[in-house]
Design a protein around this nucleic acid. Structure first.
Length: 165
DNA sequence: TAGGCCATCTGGTCCT
DNA sequence: AGGACCAGATGGCCTA
């Protein structure tokens, strides 16, 4: 985790993506991404959490399933559902299937990966002592701000000096 | 052991 | 409708 930016490239990420989907069919040896595998994995996770399994078409992942998974007991989710029905009709929720949720997770992982790549590039641009431990993301941003301000000041001073001569 | 940092998941919002 | 982006929650790892 610590050195991900240094040793992991996007091809590895693609491999992880394939493994994510392949987990749905252990031992099959199949590595092609498939929405069916994503659904399989989701169902297995739901089973593991002792959540009632619904058919893919009848219950979107973003609603009942998540509430049950989050709160654990069915009474809590039932109360929430009842309250919702009594209140003003909520905005129509976006319907998201297990497969779509899996795909969104993968996109988000890729997005965060590219963000971290950018942070790594920025780390190489800001001056640090070699023996210092790796800068965190927030440290990198703050140091970059200070560094840019410092260089800007130097530039301004040089312009003033050359103008006064 | 507490706190910091990070990866991941998730739902909401915005945009195309 | 679906992807990009964002922020909150959560859990794991590491260090003082």
């Amino acid at each position: 985790m610590e050195f991900q930016g240094d040793f992991v490239d996007s091809s590895v990420l693609d491999l992880v993506t394939e493994v994510d989907f392949a987990l749905g069919s252990p031992g099959s040896g199949q590595t092609q991404p498939s929405s069916e595998h994503g659904v399989d994995l989701c169902d297995r996770l739901c089973d593991f959490a002792e959540i009632e399994t619904f058919s893919q078409e009848s219950v979107p992942f973003g609603e009942d399933r998540v509430q049950l998974a989050r709160f654990g007991d069915h009474s809590t989710s039932f109360k929430m559902g009842s309250l919702t029905s009594l209140m003003v009709r909520p905005k129509r929720k976006r319907v998201i299937t297990c497969a779509q949720r899996q795909a969104a997770n993968i996109r988000e992982r890729k997005r965060m990966f590219s963000l971290n790549e950018a942070f790594d590039q920025l780390r190489k641009k800001v001056p640090t002592f070699a023996y210092e431990k790796r800068l965190s993301r927030i440290e990198t941003l703050r140091l970059a701000i200070v560094y840019i301000s410092f260089m800007t000041d130097i530039l301004n001073n040089n312009e003033k000096d050359s103008g006064s001569e």
